[in-house]
């Protein structure tokens, strides 16, 4: 029996098709988020990949910022529970998850059974979120996806002292005008994000193993800086960006089993 998890984030939509609650049959990611055609596109792509139709899905669970507005969904769940569920499935030893989303950052703690136990999220501020990275990448005239590679070329970190996204952007402009090396600036930006997110993680309590979830986990520079701030190794699974969608598909499977 197939279930689908659809994660409609603020900057990207992710989709997982799961077979019998254990085998990942299909994955799809579209780089446009809630309020766009992204959700429908990623859903269509995932189905088309395996020549499936809606009727072939036993249940469809939606999560993420746009979780309330996908009409054909059977149910919706918060991204908090879905990331916890997805990561616990991918890496069962993980007890602490850091997820940096497009509009928020969260630290999740799981209990020994892999269930969400506690969480802390950012306040009404874009610092430490994917939006911060997006704004900085735009100012540096590089793609957000390239930030990790630039970070690897850094010889030192250019300090970005402002927490506020707008002020940090001004700082970046100022440093660019002083010909500060771009790679070093990127490393400084990653440090700024890591410091902000580490506060959330410490506040929620850190229990090993620690993993990152979500698309920003693909940025090796952020993972490096966060690992240094938390003084621990951060595990990243190849499917980290799809963890929320995977969690949703797993919840869909559980609901299906309960119905049976």
């Amino acid at each position: 029996m197939l279930t689908m998890g659809l994660d409609i984030g603020s900057t990207a939509c992710k989709c997982i098709i799961l077979e019998d609650g254990k085998n990942i049959l299909g994955r799809a990611v579209v780089s446009s988020g809630a309020g766009t055609v992204g959700a429908q596109k990623v859903y269509d792509e995932a189905l088309a990949m395996h020549s499936l139709k809606r009727e072939d899905l036993g249940r469809l669970m939606v999560t993420g910022y746009g979780r309330f507005s996908f009409e054909t969904a059977d149910n919706q769940k918060s991204e908090l529970s879905c990331h916890a569920k997805g990561i616990a499935f991918l890496m069962p030893t993980v007890r602490t998850i850091i997820d940096i989303g497009g509009q928020d950052a969260k630290a999740l703690r799981l209990n020994a059974k892999g269930m969400l136990d506690s969480f802390v999220m950012n306040d009404k501020c874009a610092a430490g979120t994917g939006k911060f990275l997006e704004v900085m990448a735009g100012r540096l005239n590089v793609q957000t996806e390239e930030l990790g590679d630039w970070d690897a070329k850094a010889t030192e970190e250019a300090s970005i002292s402002s927490t506020c996204t707008v002020f940090a952007e001004s700082e970046v402009i100022s440093k660019l005008s002083m010909n500060v090396n771009l790679a070093n600036l990127v490393a400084g930006i990653h440090r700024s994000v890591a410091k902000r997110v580490a506060v959330l993680a410490y506040r929620n309590g850190i229990v090993k193993d620690v993993a990152m979830s979500g698309g920003v986990a693909l940025n090796k520079g952020v993972v490096r800086a966060l690992g240094e701030e938390l003084k621990t190794e951060i595990l990243v699974h190849a499917d980290c960006q799809l963890a929320g969608a995977l969690g949703a598909a797993l919840f869909a499977w559980e609901e299906l089993c309960k119905q049976a």
Binding site: Y65, K77, S78, E79, L80, S81, D104, M115, L116, D117, S118, F119, M121, K124
Partner: peptide, 21 residues
């Protein structure tokens, strides 16, 4: 100016999901 409806709902929903479990 400080309040965000979407943030409030996500936090409530997260809490509810833990309470449910």
């Amino acid at each position: 100016r400080v309040y965000s409806e979407a943030q409030f709902e996500t936090r409530v929903q997260g809490l509810v999901e833990i309470m449910k479990e």
